[in-house]
Design a protein around this nucleic acid. Structure first.
Lengths: 210, 210
DNA sequence: TGACTTTTGTGAATTTACTCACATACTTAT
DNA sequence: ATAAGTATGTGAGTAAATTCACAAAAGTCA
């Protein structure tokens, strides 16, 4: 195992590898080569081997990688071998859809809180049993329910203020769906999910080729 | 204006610059320096100047950039000076929320079609007047309504098949919300929106610091 | 007009990331 | 036991992206 600085891009790719490996597991594939995995993930085989080499020797020469073992290794590398509690802030169309979306559960993430500023929504129970809290209670509820990651799905204008409150409540990880650039202190890691930016890339591509 | 190869990352940043510049316009800011814009976008000022320099000289030395002009310039660079028609495939929770979401409209994108495989959903009219079509009609409807970009919000298992149909219908741009790696021919540009991957990055970060 | 301030545009330096190519190690078959 | 066949792990080479640092250009004010 080495201790060189790991590129951020490697971490992202590890997630992709894990997802693809899980699919393979479902198809009863026991062992996979970097070449085959690479094809499925649309990356270079050497890239995969190098990405994994940052963290140890997980393969068997002449054979490949044992799928189940590698999934577990990557799970450990990413820190997914423990529960992570999420809080959704902003229960509009998008926020509600995301909370209901099975994808978070499937990957081991659990919503333990949901907030909205609209008093009419507060108190309502979601299909998963979660009750919506008012945003004024954010700090208390976040601490009480040990929320690790805050998800922002508010209108753009409210996003920065919500982020501030989350940071104040001790949150160090934010997933932001609001289409604004949010400023957070260094202690807090923020990731943006911004589909209009992705659409813009597509528009550019359609307009001007590569 | 130069003709060097433009990094993909530059295109993504241009979207971010444009969004931030629009916010500034709303605050009646006429002129902005690369330094100030950089701070708001959390990038290096030289990065901004270099990104813009790929496409021309848009600034005034000693002054900065005229906000309104720069927004227009970036709009042209990204190919957003024309309408783009979208089709949503998969009208579950997420797909429905996205179609209702104001963010696409605000950026000039228009949904001209929506598809689902569930016969009970077909024929229903959405708030914006759009009627859901059955996925079997995808090719015809896509051509008829001149859809430019297909958005996939189906369950993972259906995503690849939907992508194939979209490509067959002549679509060259896909925005994929399904958490699977989709293979498309080179003629088609695909962007993935994958929030569990982003969450994994956050989990890693929370577990192991930087 | 000319000195001073500001901020762009950009070549050069640096940092970061990716790919190649091959020695190494493991399996299988004879 | 040995040779043949595969696929990993990695040093070296390549490519790409970012940041630095400063000359050039525009504005301001005496």
């Amino acid at each position: 195992m080495k201790f060189a600085k790991v590129p951020m891009a490697t971490i992202v790719r590890l997630s992709i590898y894990m997802r693809t490996l899980k699919e393979q597991m479902d198809c009863d594939v026991d062992v996979i080569s970097s070449e085959r995995l690479a094809k499925q993930c649309s990356v270079n085989p050497a890239q995969i081997r190098k990405d994994l080499a940052y963290f140890g020797d997980f393969g068997v020469r002449g054979v490949g990688y044992r799928v189940r073992d590698l999934v577990n290794q990557i799970r450990d590398i990413l820190g997914l071998n423990r529960p992570w509690n999420l809080a959704m802030v902003g229960m509009g169309d998008l926020g509600s859809a995301l909370v209901r979306h099975g994808n978070f559960i499937r990957h081991g993430y659990i919503f333990t809180a949901a907030f909205d500023i609209d008093p009419r929504k507060v108190g309502k129970m979601l299909p998963n049993g979660l009750v919506i809290s008012h945003i004024s209670e954010l700090e208390d509820v976040v601490r009480e329910r040990e929320v690790h990651v805050g998800i922002i799905a508010t209108p753009p204008g409210a996003a920065q203020s919500v982020a501030n409150q989350l940071v104040l409540a001790g949150i160090n990880g934010i997933l932001n769906f609001a289409p604004v650039q949010i400023q957070v202190p260094d202690c807090c890691h923020i990731e943006n999910v911004d589909f209009t930016i992705k659409l813009d890339s597509i528009a550019h591509h359609l307009s001007f080729g590569d």
